[in-house]
Amino acid sequence: MANIAAKRIKREFKEIMKSEEVIGGSIKLGLVNENWTELKGEIAGPVDTPYEGGTFLLEIKVPETYPFNPPKIRFLTKIWHPNVSSVTGAICLDILKDQWAAALTLRTVLLSLQALLSAGEPNDPQDAVVAKQFRENPRLFTMTARHWTNVYAGGPNIVHECNSKVQRMLDMGIDEHQARVALSSYDWDLERATEQLFG
């Protein structure tokens, strides 16, 4: 790996470890296999959002051209959010693309991702199905996001309505995650979700 990138990451790492966000537990950063190009991040779901209480893991790949090019980041924890793919975890955030600047750091990026969870941007979506629900049915979006946070990110809020519908599909022999995606995508309409899977 290019020395500039490794040096910069080591320096940033030290800064992050001393930051109030790490001390307060809202963000974390760690190495994967003692390798400065592969990191794992963690952000806590922000208070007063459907993600509250959840812990979201991130895969961070740092290019050799860092800090002149942005790190490649995706969510490893499944999440229901208009700017994150519910399938791949890919993120739509301008600072990870054309608005990247060498002055930005991994700490700034983690905090920006946390801010993104507080304020989804449905007009620039990564996941069109989630964005549509976010715009057209905010109550249902919040319920779905809370349910996914509970199931995948260890969030404390159990959504019994969602759990019972997922269970009904499990009883039909459908894979749990497939059932959850179909139900979430079809606004928790059991009939439409089932039709889509057995179509």
Rank of each mutant, 00 (worst) to 15 (best):
M1T: 00
A5P: 03
I16L: 07
M17Q: 15
K18E: 15
V22S: 04
V22R: 05
S26D: 12
S26V: 07
L29H: 05
G30V: 07
V32R: 09
W36I: 02
V47G: 06
G54C: 00
F56T: 03
F56N: 09
E59S: 12
E59M: 03
P63W: 02
T65C: 05
Y66T: 00
F68E: 03
F68P: 04
F68S: 07
P70Q: 05
K72D: 10
I73G: 06
R74A: 06
F75E: 04
L76M: 13
K78G: 11
W80E: 00
W80K: 01
P82W: 06
N83S: 07
V84K: 13
S86V: 12
I91V: 13
I91F: 10
L93A: 03
L93P: 01
D98A: 12
W100P: 02
A103I: 07
L104A: 06
L104I: 02
S112P: 09
L113K: 07
Q114D: 08
P125R: 12
A128N: 12
V129A: 07
V130S: 08
K132E: 13
R139K: 14
L140M: 13
T142F: 13
R146P: 05
H147N: 10
N150Q: 12
V151K: 06
Y152T: 07
A153M: 02
A153W: 00
G155N: 09
I158H: 14
E161C: 07
C162A: 08
C162Y: 01
V166H: 12
Q167H: 11
A179H: 02
V181S: 09
V181M: 15
L183V: 10
L183F: 12
S184T: 03
S184L: 05
S185T: 12
S185A: 15
S185D: 15
D189N: 13
E191D: 13
Q196G: 00
Q196A: 14
L197E: 07
F198A: 14
F198K: 15
